[in-house]
Nucleic acid binder design. Structure first.
Lengths: 231, 231
DNA sequence: ACATTTCGAGAGCAGTGCTCTTGTTTTCGT
DNA sequence: ACGAAAACAAGAGCACTGCTCTCGAAATGT
């Protein structure tokens, strides 16, 4: 029995609360997450929890950050498992499949991250850097595809001038310059992947598509082809 | 003062509750919608509301159905405003723009329909037919594009056999047969549009894209081109 | 005209997020 | 090493929620 110092104890309690909160999140979803229930489960009184998280919403954002980190780590691990780094199609598929695998394993967490924000629109808070890991992994692929001089697999319209300026920030997020049309195709792939996932996980594909795995594979394969990553 | 009959009164009260609920939904979102507050607003006691809607969830599903109907009507109206019925690209853009316009005007309703389902996964209930109006409008365009023998604007991979059988139900929802690759491209467009909308409305495009209007126009225009609707 | 159903109102229950107060314990400055 | 200061757990309490039950009053069907 080490005579726990105050900081140690605080760290332990914080973890215990977060762990129990994640478990409850997986069971009942974000809407039904109860601070009092969490307090009971970890063996303290509800008001004590507020010494660690000032409100339920802050607890939720902590869970969001944790979930983003977990998903980001999964994505990066999947990418690292592709041996030939120049196989950008494999890396793109690894990116998409990692997200889908994680989402299927943690549907409530996915809903928390990419579904409707529960307490109104969350202002730009400390969840942004964690969330950037996922898109950042994709942007790396964009840069590498540009450097590899891949030619797009589908004819792509020239960007309107408004659109060109509209994409300024995302372009700035990539160190090297990227062709207009390529940038657009990658953004479309981004929307298509998350659109598929949200439609699938939120029950909008129930009638219409039988085998989600097959459909996702077909879609992502097509996206890779459109991006010129294959061959 | 007509001596309101019982059925009349019931219809009026039901409407009053629904109207007030929609207003409150637009103000505070689905999570914070309160039966008691609605009751106060319409001038009755909370328990009286339960004579009209057996639970809060049933009230929410009624709101979902209403929202689907409103969105469906908006989509159909937008489609009807395209004079040359063979201009499938214009009709596709009308479809996409109608959804986005409605979503921007009613973000909380959009979140209710296409965001994370609030009370766990809603089982297949009476919301399905209302929801089918939106996808149904898209499927009509698929059928017409096939009949018009449009040739896809982007090279498309052959479907895997698993994928071909996976798409059985959606194919059955269209009276006339549809080419495999065309079906896939339309499903991708479907996911891409809703993916864009969810990413935009739920705040994931905040950094990255400045002008959502321009980007959406560019994306949907590209989708129409990929589907072979232009020219 | 009467029995049945429908309805509104109120009380009440169990639960929630959150605040405040009250002792107790750990930490820190001197 | 000791006393001031900060951190902490516990409990009571407030305002609120969804929902149930009972009780009278009103409209309905026969």
């Amino acid at each position: 029995m080490a005579p726990k110092t105050r900081a140690e104890n605080r760290a332990e309690q914080t973890r215990a609360i977060l762990d129990r909160a994640r478990a409850q999140l997986a069971e009942v979803g974000p809407a039904a997450l109860s601070v009092r229930q969490i307090a009971r489960d970890v063996g303290m009184v509800s008001s004590a929890v507020y010494r660690y998280f000032p409100s339920r919403d802050e607890l939720l954002t902590a869970l969001i950050v944790e979930a983003y980190d977990e998903l980001g780590a999964a994505v990066e691990a999947a990418d690292a498992h592709v041996k030939r780094r120049t196989d950008l199609d494999k890396r793109f598929l690894a990116w998409a499949n990692a997200i889908r695998t994680w989402a299927l394993a943690n549907p409530h967490e996915y809903a928390l991250l990419y579904g409707s924000p529960v307490p109104g629109y969350v202002a730009p808070d400390d969840t942004v850097p964690a969330a950037s890991r996922i898109t950042g992994a994709l942007l790396s692929l964009v840069a590498e595809s540009e450097l590899a001089q891949h030619v797009l697999g589908a004819p792509t319209n020239r960007l309107s001038t408004k659109e060109r300026t509209a994409l300024g920030p995302v372009r700035d997020a990539i160190p090297s310059p990227v062709e207009d049309e390529r940038m657009l195709r990658w953004l479309m792939a981004w929307a298509c992947v998350f659109g598929h996932l949200s439609l699938e996980l939120f029950g909008h594909m129930h009638r219409g598509v039988l085998d989600y795995d097959a459909h996702f594979a077909q879609v992502t394969g097509q996206l890779a082809a459109d991006l010129g990553l294959t061959g």
